[in-house]
């Protein structure tokens, strides 16, 4: 079985602090990492490979330095990594990104399952997974919290939706986006790290994947970012710093009065 895992390198945003003076992001020490939600897709690919056999190819589109993300994927158990990097890819939105990834996946060929993270933590769109499936015209499932069975013709998945879980039989080949409930990603092993360090990472550009140039990069992207601003978060609320039991009790009473005012009790 051949599994393809498209991944993304992102800035480490979860621990980002805002500078209260300037209202901007403090970038110091913000290293690029593998999108945390992609680790669940990599882990699931490794588990499926261990159970059913086969190989795993990780693929990413990004700057030349994004080979590091692929090496991390290999250190966790992926067999190969392919980097899609070219100036013409730069500035792509999700429409163009999913086009490039789908063309690369067509070139890799012969795949059975594509596993994606639910979304990337920087763009937060969750659009590239379904987008790849649409380009490849294959069935897909989003928000998958369990892959219960893979047979010759179908994959059985459990997807989490607002009011419960949907169990689906999906024809192969198929694309699946996974949520973090699905597994607990492993740490790289020492062997894995050695393999990752030694791995040859091919770099493909538009010619290698026979991509049409009008679909690439900023030029090929329907959306345009026209402005970036920093949201104002402050509500200028009331501040209490109770020290004694008595002060503490006063604040408790104040909260209860607040609940009454707002008619929640």
């Amino acid at each position: 079985m051949k599994i393809i895992v498209p991944i993304k390198q992102v800035p480490e945003t979860s621990n980002v602090k805002m500078d209260p003076e300037t209202g901007t992001m403090i970038r110091t020490g913000v290293e690029p990492i593998v999108n945390p939600l992609d680790l669940y897709a990599i882990e699931e690919a490794v588990r499926l490979k261990n159970q059913y056999g086969g190989e795993i190819v990780a693929v990413t589109m990004g700057p030349p330095s994004a080979h590091k993300a692929l090496r991390e994927a290999i250190s966790m158990g992926c067999d190969e990594g392919i980097l899609l990097s070219d100036k013409k890819f730069a500035g792509a939105d999700t429409w163009s990104t999913s086009y490039v990834l789908s063309k690369a996946i067509e070139k890799i060929g012969n795949f059975d399952i594509i596993l994606c993270g639910e979304r990337a933590t920087d763009g937060d769109t969750g659009q590239v997974g379904p987008g790849i499936a649409a380009w490849l015209n294959i069935p897909f499932s989003t928000y998958v919290s369990q892959i219960s069975e893979v047979t010759e013709t179908k994959v059985t998945v459990k997807r989490i939706v607002e009011n419960g879980y949907q169990l689906l039989d999906v024809e192969r080949p198929t694309l699946i986006t996974v949520v973090k409930e699905i597994n607990f990603p492993r740490l790289p092993t020492l062997d894995g790290k050695i393999k990752a360090k030694q791995a040859e990472i091919p770099v493909w550009g538009p010619e290698e994947i026979t991509a049409e140039s009008e679909h690439l990069g900023l030029k090929g992207s329907p959306t345009r970012v026209v402005k970036i601003s920093t949201p104002k978060v402050s509500r200028d609320g009331e501040r209490f710093s109770p020290k004694t039991d008595g002060e503490m009790e006063e604040v408790v009473d104040c909260i209860i009065r607040f609940f009454e005012e707002k008619e929640i009790i």
């Binding site: 945003t13 979860s14 980002v16 992001m25 345009r224 026209v226 970036i228 601003s229």
Partner: peptide, 15 residues
């Protein structure tokens, strides 16, 4: 919101 809610992006699809 983008980048973990740190920024607000204004976007359009003119064409």
């Amino acid at each position: 919101p983008a980048i973990g809610g740190n920024i607000l992006a204004t976007i359009k699809s003119p064409d």
